[in-house]
Simulated assay, not measured.
Amino acid sequence: MRLLSHLKQWRAVATEAKHVSFAVAKFIGLIHLTESYLCSSTLLHGPSMLPTFNSSGDVVLAEHLSHRLGKVVPGDVVLVRSPDDPKKMVAKRVLGLEGDQVTFFDPNRIRKHNTTVVPKGHVWIQGDNTYASFDSRSYGPVPYGLIQGRVFFRVWPPDGFGSVDD
């Protein structure tokens, strides 16, 4: 009789553990979907986007729908998987979409001003700090598929809290 009582208790504990495990798994799945496909926070640091963002670091929110819907426009600040180092994410401003003619200043070349047409399926990205940014001027137009999100809101520091303007 006592054995039967212990078995019932263990079944109740196992059932409760199963329900809690499923709830935790659903919650983790929801977090993953939100972070990957809707909105995520990111720490941006470095001098390439001065004066828009601080070189010591800003926490921003990036949404992950616009680029999937083809709604990225020139002037948007986007998160891009680096063409040089796929483990690294960079934040740059979109200056041109496919078919756009882009004129840019290149301090490393004899001809300081160059013009190019952005090829199909690519974007032209540059940091706001022309002299301290490694961007499309160095590695050329970036495939649209490397865009991971569009930065739309600054969370930190408090004095910069608010929408990210063009």
Rank of each mutant, 00 (worst) to 15 (best):
F104W: 13
K120S: 12
V142N: 05
P141L: 01
E63Q: 14
L33M: 10
P143R: 02
L3Q: 09
S82I: 05
Y139F: 15
L95R: 09
K18A: 13
N54Y: 12
R111T: 09
Q101V: 14
V13L: 13
D135Q: 07
V13S: 05
F104I: 03
I125S: 03
F53A: 03
G70W: 04
A23C: 08
G57A: 05
A14Q: 09
S40I: 00
I110M: 04
R109A: 12
I28M: 13
S136R: 03
F53K: 02
K88I: 04
W124Y: 07
K112C: 02
H19E: 14
Y37G: 00
L61N: 03
F22N: 07
D135C: 07
D85W: 04
R2V: 12
L61K: 04
V117P: 03
F22K: 08
G145K: 11
E16K: 08
W156G: 02
Q126S: 09
L44F: 07
G57P: 04
G145V: 04
S36C: 08
Q9E: 14
L95E: 11
R68D: 01
V142Y: 04
R137W: 02
D100Q: 04
D135K: 07
L50S: 12
T52N: 08
G149S: 06
V118K: 05
K87F: 05
L38F: 15
